[in-house]
Simulated scan of single mutants.
Amino acid sequence: MSDDNVCWQSVDYEGFEIHVSTRPKEPVRPGDTKPVRYTYIGYVCHPGANPALPGHTVAFHADGEDSFASTQDAQNEAVQVGRSVVDGTHPDLSVLSLVTSGV
Rank of each mutant, 00 (worst) to 15 (best):
S2W: 04
S2C: 02
S2V: 05
D3Y: 03
D3A: 09
D4L: 11
C7P: 00
S10H: 08
V11C: 04
Y13A: 01
Y13L: 01
E14K: 14
G15D: 11
F16M: 12
I18H: 05
I18W: 06
S21P: 03
T22N: 07
T22F: 09
T22H: 07
R23F: 10
R23H: 12
P24T: 00
P24D: 07
K25T: 03
E26H: 05
P27N: 10
P27F: 09
V28K: 11
V28Y: 02
V28P: 00
G31H: 07
G31V: 05
D32T: 01
D32R: 14
K34T: 13
V36I: 12
R37W: 15
T39M: 02
Y40S: 05
Y40M: 06
Y43M: 12
Y43C: 10
C45Q: 13
H46R: 14
H46F: 13
G48D: 03
G48M: 06
N50P: 00
N50R: 02
A52K: 12
T57R: 04
A59N: 11
A59S: 12
A59E: 13
A59P: 00
H61R: 13
H61Q: 12
H61N: 11
H61G: 08
D63A: 14
G64D: 15
G64N: 14
E65Y: 14
D66W: 10
S67P: 00
S67V: 04
S67F: 11
S67L: 02
A69M: 03
S70L: 00
S70Y: 01
T71K: 15
T71W: 03
T71E: 15
T71D: 11
T71F: 07
T71S: 13
Q72L: 12
A74N: 08
N76V: 07
E77K: 15
A78H: 06
A78W: 04
V79N: 03
V79M: 03
V81T: 15
G82N: 05
R83P: 01
R83Y: 02
V85E: 05
V86M: 11
D87I: 01
T89G: 04
H90F: 05
P91R: 14
P91C: 09
P91N: 09
L93S: 08
L93Y: 06
S94Y: 02
S94G: 03
S94H: 02
S94E: 03
V95M: 07
L96Y: 04
L98M: 07
L98D: 05
L98N: 06
T100N: 07
T100Q: 12
G102Q: 02
V103R: 12
